[in-house]
Design a protein around this nucleic acid. Structure first.
Lengths: 232, 232
DNA sequence: CGGGCAGTTGACCCCGCTCAAGCGCGGTGG
DNA sequence: CCACCGCGCTTGAGCGGGGTCAACTGCCCG
């Protein structure tokens, strides 16, 4: 992280989502206190197990959150995109980070110290409530994920992940998904081996359900994908 | 749920855990407003997908929370025991219930209407904060569960579940786990087939790691169980 | 006494993991 | 400029963990 990258925050993230609930005054103080950095692709913002001293919000870019298994394999839990905040789980539960946060696409990240974040929660109950809603939503997502991994087969899960990426990141003008993951990352998301992802992607391609070009993925038949994913 | 079971709450649950943070006055109002019921084993408190109009706290008993897969198989997400609250996720995120809550052991359950619960959060920031800590802790647990199911084999997971039950429910004077699940429920917890659970339990028994007597399980070698579970 | 459910065991076999080999491509250095 | 290396991707072969099916037992309860 080079020095010239510091303090170039555009304030996007704190105008977004849950920060809608803070007052003008709180906003001004927050703008003053927060601290922004740019991170390159592949850089780690924090490691699983490390103590977190504040909350991060993403101005731009994509960050993946993963846990590492005993054999060193990454299990991706979720992604953050522009406007999302992360790290708040550790700050609130006062535990070490339960995931590693690594940059997938060059990101601009704001940092809000824990003390100030907790102060905001205490003083603004609307803010506290929307934060609670956020963590509850994440909890619901995690519960669904547990069911999926436990009961669906790899083919169904891959279909579901493609739909999830489609919903979260959308498509560019060419119709390609706006996120470019390695096969290994896809495997870490689905919870399977890289080779299995490759084989199934080839099948989907053969069946004209998706189109592949390197890491670009275009969904051609979203209905069929939904049918395969078995999600009603 | 028979009529004579209503309004016999002992107030245990609202003296517990997160309700420590409420004031005397709030406590008195809450005692007046809340509503208590007894539920027999097997009764459903609410179903996955139904709208929840308040938050539940458990005075006594055990409740399991599970999601149902497309093939009808239960995936148990977690248990509640005396002092725990549940249903708050749906109330806060304003979504339908993401799990079914079913009584495993006869339970005394208090109900707090959503409006009053939200009022408490708005007016008592300490209460809000400890509730947030609770949801964040659950989120951390869920994330760990995802990693486990995705990367560990059934043997490792079963060992881990036995340790988890041991930590959560403890043992009685005979050293048996204080929770009595069917083999099918254990399978739904581990995320596997009933037959696999049976076979592995037999193995653990053969290896003198556990003792079995119907649904009673006694852990004989907790170290070995920890080794098998691969959890560091 | 009979029906039904939980538990158990054996047989079978398929999904998906692992290992290995080969390919394409971009970067680096001689 | 080309040779080489390494990484990501792809494909094939093999096999084993664990899911499924079926049969049997024991037990509870009507």
């Amino acid at each position: 992280m080079s020095y010239d990258k510091i303090n170039k925050c555009e304030n996007y993230s704190i105008t977004n989502d849950i920060f809608k609930k803070i007052t003008k005054e709180e906003y001004d103080i927050l703008s003053y206190i927060k601290n922004c950095n740019k991170y390159d692709k592949g850089e780690v913002i924090y490691h699983e197990g490390s103590r977190i001293t504040g909350v991060y919000c993403l101005d731009s870019g994509i960050v993946k959150h993963y846990k590492t298994g005993n054999d060193g394999k990454e299990q991706i839990i979720r992604f953050s995109k522009a406007g999302d905040i992360f790290g708040y789980r550790s700050v609130l539960s006062n535990e070490t980070a339960c995931t590693t946060a690594k940059v997938v696409e060059e990101s601009s990240v704001c940092f809000i110290p824990a003390t100030h974040f907790l102060k905001l929660i205490k003083e603004n109950s609307d803010f506290a409530l929307s934060l609670m809603q956020l963590s509850c939503k994440e909890l619901g997502d995690a519960n669904k994920y547990i069911l999926d991994i436990a009961q669906k087969n790899v083919r169904e899960r891959l279909a579901e992940i493609l739909l999830l990426l489609h919903d979260n990141f959308g498509t560019n003008s060419d119709g390609d998904l706006n996120i470019f993951l390695t096969r290994e990352e896809l495997a870490g998301l689905v919870g399977t081996a890289t080779e299995s992802v490759i084989r199934l992607l080839s099948e989907f391609k053969k069946d004209k359900i998706i189109q592949l070009n390197k890491r670009k993925i275009k969904i051609l038949n979203i209905k069929e994908l939904r049918r395969i994913s078995q999600d009603f």
